[in-house]
Amino acid sequence: MALVVRNLWVKRGTVSLPGKTVPFWGFAPSDTALPRLPGPTIEVTVGDMVFVVLWSNELSERVSIVFPGQRSVWVMSGLWGVRKASPQYENGRMVSLTDFLDRSAPGPIAYVFNATRPGVYLYESGTSPERQVQMGLYGVILIRPQGYSTPTDPDYKTAYGAGTGSRFDVEKTLVLADIDTLMHEALASGEAYNILDYSPDYWVMNGRSCPDTVRSDRDPAMPSQPVGSSIAARVGQRLLLRIINAGFQNHTLHFGGLVGRVVAGDGYPLATRAVDASYEKTAITLGSGQSFDVMVTPAGPGEFYLRDRDYNHLVNRDSFPGGMMTRLDVAP
C-alpha cells in the first residue's frame, strides 16, 4: 500500500501510420517528453492510493480524465480542495463528464482513486470524448494483485490473484483502436468535423498499424508510439493477452489460430473460489471500452498472426497486410 503519483501532460503531436503522418492529441509522461499513443501505462498495486496529475493542457479546449471501472474518483485542485469527481455543467448543459482542466486554469488537477481490484482498465478523456478519445487521449491502467512481485506469494505473477487461472509467464497488453485520419487532420487544424461522418481508415494496436506493430519498442521512427506489439513466447509458456478496446468500433481479436482461455472480462476474473466460469475461444469480440484477459498456451512452435477477424481492418489504405494485426513468435 503506497501513495503513487503519475504525472501527465496533454500535448499535440504526430503519429506515423504506414503511408501517412497524422496529427493527434496525447498524454505525455513529462513536461519535456512527446505525447504518446496510447498514453503512458499506469501500473499500480491493489491498495495503492493513486494520484493521476494532469499538469497542463496544450489544447484550445478543456481536457479531463475518467477512469471507467474505478470506484470513487476524487479530484484535487488548487482552488477547490478535495471533492468527488463529478460531471460539470454550464448554464444547465453538461460540458464534461468529470472535472476538467481548462487551458487557462491555474495549476494542475489531480484525480485520486484507491486501486481496489486488480485488472486492466482504460483511462481516457471525459470531455468531448467523441473527439478527444478518438484524437488519442486514452491509456491503460494495470492494477496488480498485492503479492504480484513476491515470488513466494501465491499471487506472484498473476493478473487476478491465486485461484483465478491467471498466472502467466509472458504478458502482453494490446490496446485496440480505430483512427479516422481526416477527423484528426480537421480537428488538429481547428476545422469543424461532424462526428456523424466518422469513418476510420487506419486500425491500430498500441497506436501502430501493421507492419509497424511488429517493430521494436521505442523505434526511433515512431517517437510518439513507443510500444510495439510483437510477442515472443516459448512452447508451453502461459501467455496472458490483455486486450482492451479504446476504439469506437467493435473488434474481434483472433488468436492467430490458437485457442485461448478467457480468464477475465472488464477486470472481473471468471474463476473464483465458488465457480470456474472461464471459457475457451479462438477469437473474442470486444465492444468499445471493453477488456478481456485471455490465456494462451502454445503447444507447438511457429509464427502466429494475432489479428482483427474483421478482415476489412487488416489493411492500410485498402492494401493487405496492414491494420490491426501483430505477430506472435513461439520458440521451441
Binding site: 474481434t252 477469437a283 473474442i284 469480440t285 477477424r309 474483421d310 478482415y311
Partner: peptide, 12 residues
Amino acid sequence: FKRFTVLVGAGQ
C-alpha cells in the same frame, strides 16, 4: 447459458 439473441461474432 440461455439467450434469445446471440451475437454471432465474426469468425466465431
